[in-house]
Write a protein that binds this DNA or RNA. Structure first.
Length: 618
RNA sequence: GGUCCUGUGGUGCAGUUUGGAGUGCACGCCGGCCUGUCAAGCCGGAGGUCGCGGGUUCAAAUCCCGUCAGGACCGCCA
């Protein structure tokens, strides 16, 4: 039906007769003898010169046959790639008429997100969505190519899986053939891929859909996509190298934009820099201690300062708790008292008892540090000197500090570090809600230089305790403890590190992985520490334990959150912008109105009866 | 489960604080004029259950209560 794409026509096509197909983006009328129609397809728009009598309204689908010609001198449009040419002597065939679109498709016009989802098939015509989905496709292709190049084998695992009550809430699927029994949709292919390792697949990957029935967020949907990886006979760094290869290849593929689907030579663009020296590796402890987060945003400099020693034996009660972490905000001394109070409130909301602040002034004639703070009168000259020095603060800066148990102090200051930061381009780095009041922002340009990766390794094996005082696995219960710490598994579980690692990009957790337990005895003892009885373990994970007893290779793996990765690469703040048909925050789909009640007949066939009103929560 | 923000012709907003006639802006839509525009321009027109329900009041888009929907966040997400 067509010989060219709209967006690819250039001056060198002048004189050619071409056929185009697309949607009417704009129509500009000049009376009965002249009208301009911008015809849009996935590649862009081109101007068609029509007789004014030709009927062609917004979003109608046309086939246009005409001759490409250079535009008359002076009427070129340098704002669009096809602006040097236009299509003349047009023969128009209306392929499809259209109702008036529910919202403007122009990039500059905002549209209500609910309306965009209800009419997603229209919204997808917008350049933003076209670009995002094409980038997603390039990312998936590059991830697959990297995996295959590295000798991995793509294997599909079941969507109808077995309940393994542990971790995220699962979606249940009733069995028709065996009434009263259920499959679940997998939260991840975790156990399946370990079984593949026992099965000698050796290097597995899958672009896997995962499903978790947990509340939705801008970075979480019920169903999401992971690049799921598992390999045998590997170290943690082997796994990380494989992941890094795939992720960096995908980044290059994503940012080397071929221009909305127009065929191009991948080598023609400017080569993108890789990551010189590889991706920085931080221990979990260092990440917490220096950045106050297990997913530090390394675009922001400003590591936390440690004032613990300064006040350890002091009389300054507000600062002498087990740990004291501080943050320097350059130029922050001019923040208003109201703004400071807001920071104090924020720190309290995050769990701190309070927040100390110090405005750093010019040194006095004797060269002593000068601070403005309610706590200043309690400080000695040495302490003033020490805290200014530890935080590398200059006159005009603001110092914030929290004293408490180490982890809480780190977490509170880490949150404030992000929320008070601005990126070099002036964009706030912190939570969109806190800093932008929920205002939607346009996607911003992403370059390799604006992406800061790091690995966080040596996570704790356990993360606190549950209601019964039993340790809770920080990752999942199949994670290999650090070999140096295994002997403390039962005596001091909280101190045991895991062979677990996260990949972090710009403060988002891009994925996580670990070396798994392949020794059935060790797995059994970990279940024991977790308070899972032998019988319980057998009934829930018996098939895995039996597999481990059948000759299990040492193995480990990783999973990359593809939706988050693509959103970051596209400069989007919500993964909904990189998913064709996402759900709303309450789990609904405005397009189809799902979820909906089922026919009583269908329920009966499944052996189900309803309690409570349809549509209500539990 | 909780906190906060939003809901006004098809779309995006203002109006709500301090109650007084569905008032306003921009886009879109329909019609007219217009042969070089490019988010065309000019003129005219149509289009409203102010999310829904209740309350206060002589009078409610506006104040109060409830509720629904969308969004951000906390909890949750091994």
């Amino acid at each position: 039906m067509r010989t060219h794409l709209c967006g690819e026509l250039r001056a060198e096509h002048a004189g050619e007769t071409v056929k185009l197909c697309g949607w009417v983006a704009h129509r500009r009328e000049h009376g009965e003898h002249l009208a301009f129609v911008d015809l849009r397809d996935r590649s862009g728009v081109v101007q068609c010169v029509l007789d004014g009598s030709v009927e062609a309204r917004s979003e109608w689908v046309l086939q246009v046959e005409g001759q490409v010609r250079r535009r008359p001198a002076g009427s070129e449009n340098s704002d669009i790639p096809t602006g040097e040419v236009e299509l003349a002597q047009c023969e128009v065939t209306v392929l499809s008429k259209a109702e008036t679109p529910p919202f403007g498709l122009d990039e500059r016009v905002a549209a209500d997100e609910h309306a965009r989802l209800r009419y997603r098939y229209v919204d997808l015509r917008r350049k933003r969505m076209q670009d995002n989905l094409r980038m997603r496709s390039r990312v998936l292709q590059a991830l697959r190519e990297s995996m295959l190049r590295q000798g991995f084998c793509e294997v599909e695992t079941p969507l109808l899986w077995t309940p393994t009550p542990e971790g995220a809430r699962e979606f249940a699927v009733p069995s028709r053939l065996r009434r009263g029994e259920f499959y679940v949709l997998p939260q991840s292919p975790q156990i399946a891929k370990q079984l593949l390792m026992v099965g000698g697949i050796d290097r597995y990957f899958q672009v896997a859909r995962c499903l978790r029935d947990e509340d939705l967020r801008s970075d979480r949907q019920f169903e999401f996509t992971q690049l799921d990886i598992e390999a045998s006979f590997v170290s943690a760094s082997d796994v990380r190298d494989a992941v890094a290869d795939a992720v960096l290849a995908a980044m290059r593929a994503a940012l080397d934009d071929p221009g909305a689907g127009v065929p191009h030579d991948p080598g023609a663009g400017a080569p993108l820099a890789g990551i010189p020296g590889g991706i920085e590796v931080l221990s979990w402890h260092d990440a917490m201690d220096r950045y106050g987060s297990d997913k530090p945003d390394l675009r922001i400099g400003r590591p936390l300062a440690d004032w613990t020693e300064v006040f350890a034996r002091s009389e300054v009660r507000a600062l002498s708790a087990p740990a004291c972490k501080a943050l320097c905000i350059p130029g922050g001394a001019n923040l208003s008292r109201a703004r400071l109070d807001a920071l104090v409130d924020r720190a309290k909301a995050l769990g701190a008892a309070g927040l100390a602040w110090f405005r750093v002034g010019e040194r006095d004639p004797a060269g002593k540090a000068v601070l403005d703070s309610p706590l200043d009168k309690f400080l000695t000259d040495d302490q003033r000197e020490a805290i200014v020095g530890e935080a590398a603060a200059a006159p005009g800066d603001l110092l914030l500090a929290v004293a408490s148990e180490w982890r809480l102090a780190c977490e509170v200051m880490g949150a404030l570090r992000v929320e008070t930061a601005s990126l070099p381009d002036g964009t706030p780095a912190g939570s969109p809600a806190a800093l932008r009041g929920g205002m939607p922002t346009a996607a911003r340009a992403v370059t390799p230089g604006s992406l800061a990766y790091c690995w966080v390794v040596d996570f704790p094996l356990f993360d606190g305790v549950d209601e019964e005082g039993m340790p809770v696995p920080a990752h999942h219960p199949f994670t290999m403890p650090h070999p140096e710490d295994i002997e403390r598994l039962s005596s001091d579980p909280a101190s045991v590190r895991a062979l677990a690692y996260d990949l972090v990009l710009n403060g988002w957790e891009l994925g996580s992985g670990s070396i798994r337990v392949h020794d059935p005895d060790l797995q059994a003892s970990i279940f024991d520490v977790l308070g899972i009885s032998e019988q319980d373990a057998e009934s829930r994970f018996g098939f895995l334990l039996r597999a481990l007893r059948s000759g299990a290779p040492p193995h480990g793996g990783f999973a990359v959150g593809v939706d988050r990765f693509v959103a970051l690469l596209a400069g989007e703040e919500s993964i909904r912008e990189v998913i064709a048909f996402p759900k709303t925050q309450s789990g609904g789909d405005p397009l189809t109105d799902a979820p909906k009640p089922l026919d009583a007949r269908v329920l009966a066939e499944l052996g189900l009866a309803l309690r409570g009103e349809p549509g209500s929560g539990n």
